[in-house]
Amino acid sequence: MTASTKQRVSEEQRRRVLELRRRLSLREVATATGLPLGTVKTLVSRSGAFRDNREHRAFFTLPPFCPSASTDLSPRSAPPQRAITGDKEVDALLWLRECIETGDEALIGIALEASKRIATPHRKLDQRFREWEARPYRLGLKPGIPPFRFHGLHELERLARESLARAKDRAEAAGRFGNVNADTDQEHWCCVVLAGMEPDEFGLYDDGEVSERFKAHPDRLAHTLADCLHELDYWNDLWRLRRASREAPGAYAYEGPGEASARRFFVEGLLAEIRPRNRDEAKAVLRHADARDLLNGVKGDAILENLIS
């Protein structure tokens, strides 16, 4: 065989090159397979398996935004004033917080301005409210308290920012979905792929079988770390919009079927498998993992090892 003769590569060798490339450098793949480095580079390049998967990205994308005529986006009237604690100043502050909770920008502005006219420092009113709250309730009945228990009574500015953000998310959800709490096509697909699998007592699915099933659908498989981040952003955005829903707000938002969570865990696992193409991609994964608290434990160590190896 002359030096100019091209080396034939079997289908099995090609599959092995692509499999190893997800964990090893090009030079390491060449050493492991005994193929010339140039041949390995050509096989990897021609496969397209290490370029962004356009079909995958198109599927894991939120529906386009269309302005909504929903009455949920119409200006809201101020809630009725109520005597809750019997302390006029505390009740006034409670009412202003209810106005802020509406998410209506104009009403929030009026409420914040009105709060400045309450002479007693808001922190003292917060203390008076806590003292009232700790007292035994007559007849065992609790008066209706507005839904802002995760904030101090005095944290009006913070509440206003979060309320406006939720209103913006509700508007986006209304413009993208008819019903943001209904299962999406992507969630339904996850259920189809994992059909027949049973979760354990904690609601978790076997990682090995989940991986095998999802990898059997290469058209919807992330090829690159950038693909992984694209899909994870899809899930995060979907749940962000659901958390803003008036029907199931905050921690009670519907996060979809367990199969969708299994898909997310699977994609997070790929962050430790797919090699970064360059430093910028590695840094993007590191920022994402840090923001989502993914760098702890065994999974976090695996992601870091993948990025720095």
Rank of each mutant, 00 (worst) to 15 (best):
R76F: 04
R76S: 10
R76H: 09
R76N: 02
S77L: 14
S77H: 13
A78M: 05
A78E: 15
P79T: 08
P79A: 13
P80H: 03
P80Q: 03
P80G: 07
P80R: 02
R82I: 04
R82L: 15
I84C: 07
I84H: 11
I84E: 05
T85H: 04
T85I: 05
T85V: 11
G86N: 09
G86I: 07
D87P: 08
D87F: 04
D87R: 01
D87G: 06
K88F: 05
K88L: 12
K88N: 09
E89H: 09
E89L: 14
E89K: 12
E89F: 01
E89G: 09
E89D: 15
V90D: 09
D91K: 07
D91T: 11
A92I: 02
A92F: 03
L93I: 07
L93C: 08
L94V: 09
L94K: 06
L94T: 09
W95H: 15
W95G: 05
L96I: 11
L96H: 14
R97T: 11
R97L: 06
E98K: 11
E98A: 15
E98Q: 15
E101D: 15
E101Q: 13
E101K: 13
T102L: 12
T102A: 11
T102F: 08
G103M: 10
G103Q: 11
D104K: 13
D104F: 12
D104A: 13
D104Q: 12
D104E: 12
E105T: 13
E105V: 14
A106K: 15
L107T: 07
L107C: 07
L107V: 07
I108N: 01
I108R: 06
I108T: 06
G109M: 08
G109A: 12
G109F: 11
G109E: 14
G109P: 01
I110H: 06
A111Q: 04
A111D: 01
A111V: 05
L112W: 06
L112G: 04
L112F: 08
E113I: 03
A114L: 06
A114G: 00
A114Y: 00
S115D: 02
S115T: 02
K116P: 00
R117F: 08
R117A: 10
R117S: 14
I118Y: 01
I118L: 15
I118H: 01
I118D: 06
I118W: 01
I118G: 04
I118Q: 04
A119N: 06
A119V: 11
A119M: 03
A119G: 11
T120Q: 06
T120R: 03
T120H: 00
H122C: 03
H122M: 04
H122V: 00
H122E: 05
R123L: 09
R123A: 12
K124G: 02
K124H: 06
K124D: 07
L125K: 00
L125V: 00
